[in-house]
Amino acid sequence: MAITTQTDRERGERDQRRPHGQGRQATDVAPRRARTMGRRLQRPGAWFALPAALMLAIFFTYPLITSLWQSFFATSGGVSTWVGLEQYARLLRDPLVGKSLLNAGIILVVQVPLMIALAVGLAYLLNQSWLRLRSGFRLLTFLPAVTTLVAYAVVFRVMLATDGGAVNQLLAVFGAGPIDWLNNEWWARIALIAAITWRWTGYNMVIILAGLQSIPAELYEAARIDGAGRWQIFTRIVIPQLRPVLIFTTVTSTIGALQLFDENYILTEGGPNDATLTPVLYLYKVGFRQFDFGYASAIAWLLVGLTAIIAIVQFRLMREKQ
């Protein structure tokens, strides 16, 4: 049984006094005006977004599609020929592709966990209230992240020089012999890992520090009341609360390791004996030194696929541990 309120009866009486259809038309005008006004308000936003959309289409979408299309062609004598999946089959036969992936894997397995562990430790230390001059230490730790990639790589190259380098001079003070940092395969990898770690630890530290400061103080207080020590608080409260931040920093660091180019290009140019050759550096050499852009595009899409697979696996592993 419907209940008619006084307001509904008054509205019905007013509609009856109006000409036929006028009340219904009046009620339909307001929503139409609202929709029209909403569309007018949305148009300026669309116009403001148009330049960014055009830039994205020109400098990202178009090159992405073009590189995929180009990977199915081979160029010889300035003439492009359709070869289908031959460029991707060539990846399986190329020993340098395997060597570059092996080098990237070594950097990924060693450097990323080391850097994340250092970033967590530094962030936890710089978040302590008893530490004096915390702002100054945070600034010093973050400064490497804002230095120019080329500049810091050149500085590391000078410091790690076999003859007269600052690092070997420091080792000589302690009676250690000079190390051929950039001309030995394993020492070159260690030097590259050290340079990357110095550059990006502060960047990840700032992100993790922001995550630490978002942890409620009540959790620490409750843990202390229950008798938890510092290590228990760190492992049972801090690390679980930081899991989303750690997922983000691990995935971005993994992508950065797979896309490594500037540091190894300046320090060693991929040597010695291709010990620091990475997929992006090999892509650069194939594309811009051998001018084999079809094969370089295939290498690029191989890298895209591997990056996506590793990122998805990391996300799922982190979620399963939650």
Rank of each mutant, 00 (worst) to 15 (best):
M1C: 04
E13F: 04
Q16R: 15
Q22C: 03
D28F: 09
V29M: 13
A30T: 13
P31C: 12
R33H: 13
W47V: 03
W47Y: 12
F59Y: 06
L64Y: 15
T66S: 14
L68D: 06
L68T: 05
W69Q: 15
S71A: 11
A74P: 11
S76E: 15
G105D: 14
Q111G: 08
P113A: 13
P113I: 08
V120S: 10
V120W: 09
N127G: 08
R132W: 10
L133D: 10
F137E: 05
L139H: 01
T147R: 08
V154D: 06
V154Q: 09
V158M: 15
G164A: 04
G164C: 00
Q169R: 14
Q169N: 11
A172L: 02
V173Q: 11
G175H: 09
P178N: 04
N184R: 03
W187E: 07
I190G: 14
A191D: 08
A191Q: 07
T201F: 13
Y203E: 01
V206Q: 11
I208V: 13
L209K: 03
P216W: 03
E218M: 12
E221W: 07
A223G: 09
R224A: 10
G227I: 07
I233T: 13
T235C: 14
R236M: 07
I237D: 10
I239K: 00
R243T: 03
P244C: 04
I247C: 11
F248K: 03
F248S: 00
A257N: 08
Y265N: 05
E269T: 06
G271E: 12
N273T: 08
T276E: 08
L277C: 01
I299T: 06
L303Q: 04
I310C: 02
